[in-house]
Structures are given as structure tokens and as C-alpha cells.
Design a protein around this nucleic acid. Structure first.
Lengths: 337, 337
DNA sequence: CTCCTGGACTTAAAGGTTTTCGGAAACGTA
DNA sequence: TACGTTTCCGAAAACCTTTAAGTCCAGGAG
């Protein structure tokens, strides 16, 4: 459609100057008379000139592009991290090259090579869970930052949510609301998230000198499991006054069954979820108090840190990012709701 | 960390040949003796040579990169489309440059310019709703394909779900199950999706010579609205035996309230949702029969079409992609469930 | 008058790869 | 021996931009 794209030499000849002068004028550098600059700018506008980023990158060695390598395309957790990162980059003039390895190590290596070949300035690897994952490759010529799923190698840079702290915060909230018989329903134990959140629960209970009500119940991350666990729990420990759930899905299931069994939430039993998955947490009745991992902030922070690393200053290690407790009706004091 | 990256001239001198020969050997072209090729390949492997995609793109004019421009980062609908596209590209050697305009036209133009400057080979624009949107720009030197949200300009290429057909299919399913008093609860009328789905409903009812039960109820796309509408509907039209809902959220709300009001689903009232948002459609009781828009397929198709357009053969117009009815328990015949 | 200074502009190299074309060697034929 | 053909390889241009270095000129100082 559009005729051949204009190059800087087209602009230069239209303005009647040399290529070098055109370049200087366009980049706002010294040694160009104001009138000349005007002429060049006018010519560039007329030809709607766009500098070729490839040629520019070839010279400078900087492409102003980063790779974003994700393992779980469809994942609930990868997306916000990705958005946060894209946000941080978009503010400047960075671009994001998106790759999805679908959890396959071979494909991941393939993508890393492709990104290297495209001379990206850095790499963000976002995991599908907070379980540590193999380092993407030992000696890459570019900095790498891990988000959500940390690297196994402690000399890499990783950003993860502070699950332990968040769980403790959630449980402390329940304690502050006067609850003392707190049960725990959560996900599979092969998730580090599960173990971390349980650790946070125990830590908070221990500090307060309160015993956990019943055993921790582990199962899949599903609403169905929340309902099933609710039945078991209400049978085994009928006197509980609070439940800390490992996810909003589990919490939603618990709330539903508790209602059906005639337990009032929050009056009889307070419930805290995890993830702040809005379609669940705001639509249950009552709306769920829940932990928000601030994943967009995490992604943005990871991206900003990648900038720093590109500029030379990296701080290795696993950085724990604070989470936030979103307080809604499911933990209101009795009589308020 | 890693020493300076190897160039083809490093490979050539290590193999003891000229740059031209090295290039030919690496690209598997003629006019190279087998033994020479071996030597070059060995040298490349030893230096772990990666051809510089920038230099390559500069010459060929093809970057093997496409831009993916989305308006609603966080959107439920953009994501699967994006994944499908990424999938189609990843199969070849294409890379995806991701941009999020956050629904801002200015930012969108900015991103288009940046992508053009990076010399992408094509552009996919994914919309946040099926409402037609302004064409991204009149005369772009590269092909553009619109996915989910079509362009206002009929000479552009757009791929959208066939909402009319899908709604008709859903209603025909209800009719086939023997339902005759079918009501409709849906979203805001300023969504084309709402209007299309209602059109499909009417088309199917008319063909069958059946009248709609009550007025169409429109409100927000929320579970809350589903509950509210359910109360109104069960009051106004107590004899309905089926409801076609404009989204799974609305359907989930309806089902919940219907249960509470003592109506059995599906025995008394069959329910069909829309979107197949699994966290809702499979976790309601009973699980929802619902329309799956096959958005990943749509995204993949759009990407494949973009390939074709890059190679010169585009077929303008709005292409309606078929949807699929996922049948679950919420529409089983009475007595089966 | 010469020399110097500094501004405004141009020339040319560099960056890494692909590709065209020409060259050289080896071989067969007359 | 002279010539044509085939096979393999290398020199150099091209892609587009940035930048270091160089040219040219006017004007001021000595």
C-alpha cells in the first residue's frame, strides 16, 4: 500500500543537507543551525519518517527490548505480573517480546536462544507457582529477573510474594477480631505456597498462644474441595469460629456449604480467603476478606529491577514482596454485618 | 559475564574461511563443500554463535516479528485470543511484541508508531468487546488483523465470534430439550454482544414459533445482577422453564437465587450461560451448559490469517468464527440429573 | 597579513549479516 | 596446449543509522 518507507537519507536530500546533519537535527544534538533543524524536521514530517530501530540497535548494541518468558500462559498469576511488567516498560520506550514455554524446558531453551538472537537487553521469567524453578541458563550475556516463581540459584534475582507474612497477617486479623478457634483449609502440599501459608498461620497462632482448631485440610485448589472440606470440618470441629482458606476458590466453597449447614458468616464463622480473585471474592455472600498478593506491583518491581540490572546494578537474592489484606464482610465482628 | 558475543566473522576466521562461505554454510546453501560446512558448523558451535537478528532484518526487510496491540490488558477475553495468537506464531519462528494501550487512543497511536519503527511484519489488534472500533490507522505499510473487536472499516480484516449463531444454537438446545417458556437475562445494551445474542435468541424462537417468556432483562455483567434479575423474573413469570443468560456470571447468580427460592435446576428450570468461564461454569451446582466462544482458536486463526496477509493474500471483511455449546447438567432433561 | 577559534556542515567508518558476482582451481575435451 | 565447464570460495555492496573526524569559512586577535 504505502510506498517504500522513508529513510533518513530521503529526509536529508529533501531538506538539502547531509545524512549526518539530518541525524543530528532529528536527535536534537548540537552543531545545527536552528533554521536547518527546522527544515529537516519539516522534511521528516512530510515523509512521515520513522527511524529504523534495527539499524539503530545494530550500532548502539541496545535494542530497548526485553523478553518476557512465561511458563503458564493461561495462568491466573502470570497475567497480572506480565501486565505490571508491561506497564513499567511501556512508560519508557521499552518493548516486550512475549514468549510462552508452556512449562516445557526444551521450548524454554529454544525461546531463550531466539530472544538472545534478537539481542534483547534483559529477560523476565515469570513462574506458574512460587515453587523454585531451575535457573534459565548459567551464563547469559544479559540480566535475568525471576518473578513469582523464584530461581533455584540464590545468585539470581527473584521477586516473590511474602506468603508467610501474608498468612500471618490474615490470621492476626482473625485474632484481632476475637476469633480463637481457627481452622485451616488449603491446597496441595507440593505447592510451596501451601507450605508457606501454613507456616505463616502457625507463626501467628504461636505468637498469640492459640492452638489451631483441628488439622490442616489439604486438597485441590477448587471450590468443590472447599465445599467438601467444609462438611468434614463442620462435622469434626463444630465449634470453630474462623477458617483461613488457602485460596478464594476454597473459601467460596466453604462459605456456600457453611450457609447451607446453617452457619452464619461472619457471625458464627469468619472466613479469610487468598488471591483476591475478584469474581469470587466480591461475589460471594458475604464478600470475602482475602489476601491480595499485589501481583501487578510485583511485576512492575521486577521490571524496574531489570532496568537497574541492565544499567549494571543488580541485587541478587530472593526478594519477598509484601501482600495486602483486603478486608470485606466475611470477617466483620458479629452483629455488624 | 559472557565475553563479547561471537559474530559470523569470528566463526569464519576460526573455521579458516571467508565470511561469505561461513554464511552459506550456516544457512545451508549450495556451493559449499561438505567438509567445509562441517568445519564452519563446528566453529559456530564452539563459539555458540547466534546470528544477529537485527543485522539480518536490516537486510531482508523482514523482522519475523509481529505486534500484538491490546486495549484491555486485564480483560477476560483478550487473554485467550492473545494466547492463541502467540501459539500460532511460536510454532514458526515468529516473535510477538506485546503492547497494551489501556483503551487510550493516544497511547495506541504511540504504540503503533513504536511498532512501525521496530519494523514489525504485521499487527494484530485485539479488542476488549465485540463492539466495532476505529481502524488503527488508514495507510499502514504492514497488514493488520483485528481479533474479537472488529474494525469499523469493512475493508479491514476482522475475526469475531458468531454471537448470533451461538445464541441461536443455545436456544435451539433448550427447545430440543422440550423447554417452551424461555426467558432472557443479559448484559448492557450498549454491548454489541448483548444485542447479537438477543438477536440469536429471537431468531431461534421465531423459527420454532415460540414466544419469549417475559421481557429481556438487561443489567451489568455481574453475578449480583443475575441474582437480582432472578428474583424479578421468578416473581413476574413464575412459569418459566428455561433461562438463557448473557454470561456465566449472570447464570451463576440466577442459579443461586433459583435454588434458594426452591426451584430445581435443571428439573424445573434449565439454564444456559455464556463464555464458559470455567471457574464459574464448572463450579456452580449444577455445572452450567454454556457457550464457549473458542477464543484461542479465534486468536490462532487471526494469526494464521496475518501470515497469509504478510505473504500477500488477504481476504478483507468481518469473519464470524463459530462458537461451541458445552453441554453440562444445567440443561439435562428432568429426572436425569 | 597570519594564525587561531569555533560554528556549521560533510565524509566516511562502523555495526553484522546476506547476496551477487567474479575469480580460481580442477577437470574433461579437442 | 588451448579452451570450456563445473565446483568451491572470496570480495564487496547493501541494509540504515550514528558518530568521530575532517573541511570550510567567517571573524577576531596578534
Amino acid at each position: 500500500m504505502a510506498s517504500k518507507r522513508a529513510t533518513i537519507s530521503d529526509v536529508a536530500s529533501l531538506a538539502g543537507v547531509s545524512i549526518a546533519t539530518a541525524s543530528k537535527a532529528l536527535n536534537g544534538r548540537q552543531d545545527v543551525r536552528a533554521a536547518t533543524r527546522e527544515r529537516v524536521l519539516a522534511a521528516a514530517a512530510e515523509l512521515s519518517f520513522q527511524p529504523n530501530a534495527l539499524a539503530r540497535g545494530l550500532i548502539s548494541g541496545q535494542t530497548r527490548t526485553v523478553g518476557l518468558l512465561t511458563s503458564d500462559s493461561v495462568g491466573r498469576f502470570g497475567i497480572p505480573v506480565l501486565l505490571g511488567a508491561e506497564d513499567a516498560f511501556g512508560a519508557g520506550e521499552m518493548a516486550v517480546l512475549l514468549c510462552d514455554a508452556r512449562g516445557d524446558a526444551i521450548r524454554e531453551q529454544h525461546h531463550v536462544r531466539a530472544l538472545l538472537s534478537r539481542r534483547v537487553d534483559g529477560l523476565i521469567v515469570v513462574g506458574e507457582s512460587t515453587n523454585p524453578r531451575p535457573s534459565v541458563s548459567k551464563d547469559l550475556p544479559i540480566p535475568v529477573v525471576y518473578a513469582y516463581g523464584p530461581s533455584e540459584d540464590p545468585s539470581d534475582v527473584s521477586f516473590v510474594p511474602d506468603d508467610v507474612g501474608a498468612a500471618a497477617m490474615a490470621v492476626n486479623h482473625l485474632l484481632a477480631m476475637g476469633r480463637r478457634r481457627i481452622a485451616h483449609i488449603t491446597g496441595p502440599t507440593h505447592y510451596k505456597a501451601t507450605r508457606d501459608r501454613e507456616a505463616g498461620l502457625h507463626q501467628a497462632l504461636e505468637e498469640a498462644g492459640v492452638a489451631q482448631a483441628g488439622q490442616t485440610l489439604t486438597g485441590p485448589w477448587s471450590q468443590r474441595w472447599g465445599r467438601h472440606a467444609a462438611e468434614m470440618l463442620l462435622m469434626a470441629e463444630p465449634e470453630i469460629d474462623a477458617v483461613f482458606c488457602g485460596s478464594d476458590q476454597i473459601a467460596a466453597g466453604f462459605v456456600e456449604t457453611a450457609r447451607e449447614r446453617g452457619r452464619r458468616v461472619p457471625d458464627d464463622i469468619a472466613v479469610v480467603g487468598y488471591d483476591n480473585w475478584e469474581v469470587l471474592s466480591t461475589e460471594t455472600r458475604p464478600a470475602l476478606t482475602t489476601v491480595d498478593m499485589n501481583l501487578e506491583v510485583l511485576g512492575r518491581t521486577a521490571a524496574q529491577h531489570l532496568f537497574a540490572a541492565i544499567d549494571g546494578k543488580a541485587t541478587p537474592g530472593v526478594h519477598k514482596m509484601p501482600c495486602q489484606l483486603v478486608i470485606r464482610d466475611s470477617t466483620s465482628p458479629p452483629g455488624i454485618s
